[in-house]
Design a protein around this nucleic acid. Structure first.
Lengths: 196, 196
DNA sequence: AAACTATACGAACGGTCGTGCTACCTTCGG
DNA sequence: CCGAAGGTAGCACGACCGTTCGTATAGTTT
């Protein structure tokens, strides 16, 4: 199979830029991203980075996409290997807390940060963040519905999913803001009590 | 009592600037604040606004302080009028949800937004946000302890406070990001179940 | 009335931002 | 081997950033 070396080169630097971009954005936000800063840190030219994405907004959207892939590989995919119902629900929570606590993104959960950043602004970036965040929320809801349908737990699945999602995000927020791991312990106790 | 008209005038424009600043920051973040933008919108000179605060960081800190005052007057103070224990705990939650839902700040809860913005960055702004956020968390914890001590509810007050705070923030996050009021309804159901 | 103080302004500073344009180099298809 | 195409670099642009300076104005103090 013929591989165009030119395209391959572009895709490689694109990945290089995006790997840095998700880390920067998780700390300084998608607005804190700057072509010049990325270019300097990666020893590329600003115009080269710019040409790679065409506009800052496209860079932001590509960064969201890249972060989404990382998020899925750490949280969603491993959870799908676990049996549906309560076991999967537990796995989702634990994988998410682990993903936050291990600082897969240096600023904590990427989507928590950019969600808060763009929640009240219109535009394509807001929409992309909302879709990403919403699809994970729906994943929890669906898993909660399964757990209820299988008789593993008695609850309103909508409320249960909302609670679990809330506890995880609060742990991320408190832990990143204040340091320490106490918030994760609190969340694990609350989640454990809720899923027993 | 002698009032210095010069100082009074300065304090007045300071309030004028800060009133706008908290609204801007609740949507675009404390980094999205800009001296020039504030000055233009309020028909002041950029240097005048700058002189009023001395630096951008001081403006950010003053904005946090102004937001804190608004937050307290809407959430904390009214809750202190309610009897300690379960009634006060309920009042805190309801006042907080109401404060978020009524968009006292156009971007939703001010401290949720700037907390996520500065959680992973060092500096005085981070510290101020952490203190403000932490003191409200402590207020919930203390109220939860009272409710337990009074025998109004049986629970670990630390976990209970964490849960309530988490549910409120999640409602704010979902509602602002996706629009609609469904998230508040979910939070109220979850809180109601937790505080029964 | 004079000296002083605080607010507020206008202009300018150096810097960074996102965005074009142009040229060079590598790699491809014919 | 040649021209086309894609990736990358250099340079310049206009806009905005936070900041500084000098100055005018209004209010206080003596």
């Amino acid at each position: 199979m013929p591989v165009d070396g030119r395209l391959a080169r572009g895709a490689a630097t694109r990945r290089l830029v995006l790997r840095r971009a998700v880390d920067v954005a998780s700390v300084d936000g998608l607005d804190g991203l700057s072509l010049g800063r990325l270019a300097t840190e990666l020893e590329l030219s600003k115009s080269g980075v710019f040409a790679l994405f065409g506009s800052k907004e496209e860079l932001q959207l590509a960064t969201i996409e890249a972060a989404l892939e990382i998020f899925r590989s750490h949280v969603v995919t491993p959870s799908l290997d676990v049996a549906p119902g309560l076991p999967r629900l537990r796995a989702i929570c634990e994988n998410w807390l682990d993903y936050s606590e291990r600082r897969i993104f240096p600023g904590g959960c990427f989507f928590f940060n950019v969600g808060a950043e763009f929640d009240a602004r219109p535009g394509r970036v807001h929409d992309a963040v909302a879709v990403a965040s919403g699809s994970f929320a729906e994943f929890i809801r669906e898993s909660a519905r399964e757990a209820v349908a299988l008789g593993h737990i008695e609850a309103d699945p909508e409320v249960l999913a909302f609670e679990l999602h809330a506890l995880g995000r609060a742990a991320n927020a408190d832990a990143v803001l204040n340091g320490g791991t106490q918030a994760y312990a609190l969340a694990r106790r609350a989640i454990g009590a809720r899923l027993s």
